[in-house]
Each structure stands twice: as structure tokens, then as C-alpha cells.
């Protein structure tokens, strides 16, 4: 048994210490918004926040998450940055199949939480770990800029 903090709530989970957080979220807690893509931290589909920083939950053992705050896509509507990102994602027609978008939004909102004026290079740097096979990269770049503008009170 371990106790982890997910989206501000303390959760008791019955998983071995090396179980990746991804499977604790999906299989034990029924939170399926976080997706499996590769299991090797190479595609970004499983991105969550650990104390606000983007991490690949497929490669993060649950033991390493104890004592830290995990935030998932399910909680993003409740944060100003997450809300701004979701709103600009819709306005810029970002999603296609949608599968990688939980991870994209988690990476984008982590970027915007610490950098309210990201350059193209900042965006590429923050987002290049998240693969989108539908090729929504241009739209993601535009949406991040729009979300930044809105957070800065210019939209």
C-alpha cells in the first residue's frame, strides 16, 4: 500500500512500489485521461505533473511519487493555466484524433506555468518530447502563444 496525492486528494493505492504511476492512475484509480503510448518515456502521451513539472508517468515508479503532488489532465480545467490552454486548444482547432492531447496539454501548461512569454524555441524545447502522429504541431505552437497572451491579459 502507498499513499499518493493526486489532484489534491490523498489516495491509498495497492500497487507494488515499482508500478508506474500511469498504471496506478488508469487501472487502480480509473483515471483514464492519461494515455499509454510507448512505456519508455519516448512519446509523451502519459505526461502528468509532479510538483508542477512535466514527467512521463509510464516510467515513474509510484514509490517515487510518494510525498509529491501528482496532477493529471482531469484536474486541468480547474487551474487558470490549464483552462487557458484548453480554451486556446479549441479556438486553434488543435486536436485531431485526440489521443496524445492529454500529454500535449500537460506539457504546454507546465511550460506556461513558468514561462508566460515562450519563444518558438522555448515551445519546441518544451514540446519536442510529445509526439503527435496527426501532425498538430503548428496548431499547438499557435495555441500556446494564444494561451500565453490570454494569461498575460492580452486576449
Amino acid at each position: 500500500m502507498a499513499t499518493i496525492n493526486v489532484n489534491g486528494r490523498s489516495m491509498k493505492v495497492d500497487a507494488s512500489p515499482d508500478t508506474p504511476v500511469l498504471w496506478v492512475l488508469r487501472d487502480e484509480l480509473g483515471m483514464t485521461g492519461t494515455k499509454f503510448g510507448c512505456g519508455m518515456a519516448l512519446c509523451g502521451a502519459c505526461t502528468v505533473h509532479l510538483d508542477g513539472a512535466p514527467v512521463r508517468s509510464c516510467s515513474l515508479p509510484v514509490s517515487a511519487a510518494v510525498g509529491h503532488r501528482i496532477t493529471t489532465i482531469e484536474a486541468m480545467s480547474g487551474t487558470p493555466v490549464g483552462k487557458a490552454v484548453q480554451t486556446s486548444w479549441v479556438a486553434n482547432d488543435v486536436p485531431q484524433c485526440g489521443y496524445c492531447q492529454s500529454g500535449q496539454i500537460m506539457s504546454a501548461s507546465a511550460l506556461l506555468a513558468k514561462n508566460r512569454k515562450p519563444s518558438d524555441a522555448d515551445i519546441d524545447q518544451a514540446m519536442s518530447g510529445n509526439i503527435c502522429r496527426c501532425g498538430t504541431y503548428n496548431q499547438i505552437r499557435a495555441a500556446i502563444k494564444q494561451a500565453a497572451a490570454s494569461l498575460n491579459g492580452r486576449a
Partner: peptide, 9 residues
């Protein structure tokens, strides 16, 4: 889009 952006797909 809404369901894809909130983890509800």
C-alpha cells in the same frame, strides 16, 4: 473537442 481536452475521450 471538449472530451479530448479534459481526459474524457
Amino acid at each position: 473537442d471538449a472530451r479530448f481536452l479534459t481526459g474524457q475521450g
